[in-house]
Amino acid sequence: MTGFGALLARDVRLVLRRPGDVAVVLAFFVVATALFPLGIGPETNLLARIAPGVLWCAALFASMLSLDRLFASDYEDGSLDLLLLAPWPLELAALAKCAAHWIVTGLPLALLAPLLGLTFGLDPLALAALTATLLVGTPTLSLIGGLAAALTLGARKSGALLALLALPLCVPTLIFGAGAVEATVSGQGFGVHLAVLAALALMALATTPWAMAAALRQAGE
């Protein structure tokens, strides 16, 4: 686990050295969600109804923004070769990079979301559901996005290709994430939705590292 921890720490440190990259992601999330109340007007009921979908969609798009650089910088500066030659499994390296992506993207999005939820008039329970579902659901987005990033490594227009590959695979997470908040708004609990989101995250955790490693090995040739 030493290699995993070292790579995770290195990638988080790299992002902290360039805080602008995270700031762009968070700014996109804020601006994209803020446009809806401005465009639709101050109809609290309508805003509260669309809030789960809007916030989850915005979080999904925001988390995709930085994914095309997940492996691209390693590919461009030659450190991908070092990952491929590291004396520990490449699957763990891919997982460490996705974990770092989640720490600097998914986690801040989940923590910022309740503040934006307030502008949509969500009640405290719905805000709690929103935060919980984003905390459980965004790791899946990082893992699926990481897989798409590995598959599109070295391709031209990889950003657009990445989104085309990753977004359809993120639909179940989006549905259950937004559905949990919607269920809470309509007076039902969000436990079942959260359980499904956790299952999706575990499924992604169990499958994507191997696929990412295979794609990275292919790219390294």
Partner: peptide, 28 residues
């Protein structure tokens, strides 16, 4: 692979890290 130390065409260094940080990321 654990027996191989590699230097490729590209340096394999992270531009935003210091020299020491780069070395520490592969040698604790």
């Amino acid at each position: 692979r654990s027996q191989v130390a590699w230097l490729g065409h590209l340096d394999g260094l992270k531009a935003d890290l210091t020299v020491r940080e780069n070395l520490h990321s592969s040698q604790p």
